[in-house]
């Protein structure tokens, strides 16, 4: 289904199947993602979100299926073309993947220096502004081991933003962040999409922060796309299991069907937020 993005899709997958050790993780996933969109990727833990992301950014090669990035089939890319492709992609890894032998400045500058081939003085401005945007000015010289979990996550986000990729993927950008910072980060992601015209894909369990900034939601359940459409139609057009999941996640209830405690972390006042979000997205009985 088409979101409010324009032009050709930057990411396009057809019939993606992925297995780990013979166990199917993704079963026949098809998606088109357009530039300028903010897409939310939701689903219970273990449903294949992270694996889908890894396939989309060319870190994992699926067993079957076609992947097109920037309009070109990726499976046929030669080594140099793959490099070229990857310089236009940014991923914030779920567990940060900060280089623990480099300080914060060098971590954020890493894609700029290596993928873009910039000189350190050219990169400096971009690095500092990215760190300022996530609220971490002044910690350039610290090592990742000296930072708290939330700060590391923000460094990882700054690393993606500094490189200004055309496909920016964030895997759990606000888990474990305090409410003020997670609201700030989410707003930052939305602004990033609208100013740069890039595709922003956000996977998270924090639905009441996610839904207000997204135009489109993709729900992955058991390795399949259970819902793909505008956020406003989520509570009317989606299948039952998605609706139940979203309602439970928004109201902060411990749904016995969900094996996913992190979904409730870092939330300020579940009731109010849920009401506000649901009011926007069309309401639910």
């Amino acid at each position: 289904m088409r979101g409010e993005g324009i032009g050709e899709p930057v990411v396009s997958v057809r019939g993606l199947v992925h297995r780990i050790g013979g166990r199917p993780i993704l079963k026949d996933v098809s998606l088109d993602l357009y530039p300028g969109e903010v897409v939310g990727l939701i689903g219970p833990g273990g449903s294949g979100k992270t694996q889908l992301i890894r396939c989309l950014v060319t870190l994992t090669w699926p067993a079957r299926g076609d992947l097109k990035l920037f309009g070109r089939p990726v499976g046929l890319l030669r080594r140099r073309r793959l490099r070229e492709c990857r310089t236009r992609i940014g991923l914030q890894f779920q567990n940060f993947a900060l280089f623990d032998y480099l300080d914060v400045w060098n971590n954020v500058a890493f894609p700029l220096l290596h993928a873009r081939g910039m000189r350190p003085d050219e990169a400096d401005l971009l690095v500092r502004s990215a760190l300022e945007r996530v609220g971490l000015s002044g910690s350039e010289a610290k090592l990742p081991s000296e930072l708290s979990g939330g700060m590391r996550r923000r460094v990882a986000i700054a690393r993606v933003m500094a490189a200004a990729p055309e496909i920016a993927v964030f895997d759990d950008p606000v888990a474990g962040l305090d409410p003020v910072n997670s609201a700030k980060i989410m707003a930052l992601l939305r602004d990033y999409a609208s100013t740069s015209g890039s595709l922003v894909l956000v996977a998270t369990h924090d639905l009441d922060r996610l839904l207000p900034i997204t135009s489109r939601v993709v729900a992955v359940f058991g390795g399949r796309v259970a819902y793909d459409g505008p956020t406003s139609a989520l509570m009317t057009g989606a299948p039952d299991e998605v609706r139940r999941f979203v309602a439970a996640a928004l109201s902060g209830e411990a749904d016995p069907d969900l094996d996913d405690p992190p979904a409730r972390s870092g939330r300020s006042s579940p009731g109010d937020a849920a009401a506000a979000v649901l009011g926007k997205s069309g309401g639910v009985s």
């Binding site: 990857r86 567990n95 280089f99 890493f110």
Partner: peptide, 16 residues
């Protein structure tokens, strides 16, 4: 330990 914390993948994505 770089591999299990995705640092190796992060390098690949940075074309390194």
């Amino acid at each position: 330990s770089m591999q299990v914390s995705d640092q190796v993948d992060a390098m690949k994505l940075s074309s390194v």
